[in-house]
Simulated scan of single mutants.
Amino acid sequence: MTTSLTETRQTTDELVSWPRRRMHHVFARDGRAVIAAMDAGIKGVAPGLADGRAAVRRIVDGGVDAVLATIGLARAAAGELGGTGLILALDSEIPSAGYGVEQAVRFGADALELKVFPGNPQVTKLGELRELCAEADRWGMPVMAEPIPVSFKDLQAHTVVNVANAARLSAEAGADFVKAQFVGTVEEFAGVVESCLVPVLALGGPMKPTPRDALQLAADAIEAGARGVVYGRNIVENPRPDRMVAALVEIVHGGASVSAAAKLLNPPL
């Protein structure tokens, strides 16, 4: 099994003491999670998500722990989701704290997600995150923050130091767990994980050159001490998203090597 550079800070036993029981619907018994980000429809029809119900069904069949989705997709694919964990994406044109938590509770979601942009001179959304976390805490609703230094387009700002600071700022604002960009070496990303006050999940980011590259990122993140991954395009745009999920599950939960997990991508039909 893969040996982590850092001790896992919160074991399954420690998770039991968390006040938000919904966290157990996102993280498996080993305290790790494979999450499929399926919220790209917020911008319209997205690759791999044209048939939202079928996309959710295949990913759930692969053994994903939780799905990140808009309220529209979650409603449409409620039957396919079944008991799989659900994180509602709250990224919006208006502040979401005033409606997001109640909407999530009514629908039966297990967590909320909000993107923030520390260092952005126009809007960081950290204030919105603080307000959302305070309201969510009243309902026992976990919040996952996705902190992107400055913006998605400002790649020069996505340094190890900035990603670490952004993750820590999100935790300080009240986020229960954070999905962060995997940056630098395994050792450097281990520093990002160590300096954050809450569990860190590695986000998949842009489509990788090959599925094996996406698996390698997951393995590196786990080695660095991350508690799992949140993959969007690298799952939903794969010709067999169910097999991609199954391979990620083997790495994140089973401690499989990249080579062993990659064998699940194209098994004999």
Rank of each mutant, 00 (worst) to 15 (best):
R75E: 14
A202F: 01
W139N: 05
Y231P: 11
N165T: 05
Q10C: 13
D242H: 08
L201C: 03
V245Q: 02
L269V: 10
W18R: 13
V150N: 06
Q103I: 07
S96T: 13
P47C: 07
L269S: 11
N238I: 03
A111Q: 05
K179T: 10
L197E: 10
L88W: 04
T6R: 14
V236F: 13
S151D: 09
E7C: 11
E128R: 04
N238Q: 13
K179W: 01
R243S: 10
A134E: 15
V160N: 06
M144F: 06
R58P: 02
G254I: 02
A134T: 07
V236L: 14
G191Q: 12
N120R: 03
A50D: 13
K125P: 04
A166S: 13
P149R: 04
S259V: 06
M23I: 14
A171S: 14
V249G: 07
V183E: 09
A136K: 07
L169K: 10
H24D: 13
A28K: 11
G72K: 12
A50W: 07
A175F: 03
R9I: 01
A111C: 04
V200D: 02
S170D: 03
H158M: 13
Q103H: 10
C133W: 04
T3G: 03
P206Y: 02
R9H: 08
P199C: 11
P142K: 01
H24L: 14
P206F: 04
P47S: 00
A175D: 02
C133A: 14
E172A: 07
V123Y: 10
T124Y: 05
I222Q: 01
L90F: 10
R212F: 00
I42Y: 11
V183L: 02
L5Y: 05
K179D: 11
A180D: 03
A40G: 09
A40Y: 12
Y99M: 06
A246E: 14
A28M: 02
L217D: 08
E187I: 07
T6E: 06
K153M: 05
R29K: 14
A190Q: 04
R243D: 10
G191I: 00
P268L: 12
E102F: 00
P118C: 07
D220K: 08
R9F: 13
V198H: 00
V230S: 14
A175P: 03
L248S: 05
M207N: 11
S4P: 02
L112F: 04
P149V: 01
A55F: 04
A221C: 05
A104W: 09
L217G: 11
N165R: 13
T6H: 11
P142Y: 01
A66H: 02
V60W: 08
V249W: 00
A260R: 10
Q156S: 09
P209M: 06
W18L: 15
M141S: 02
A37S: 12
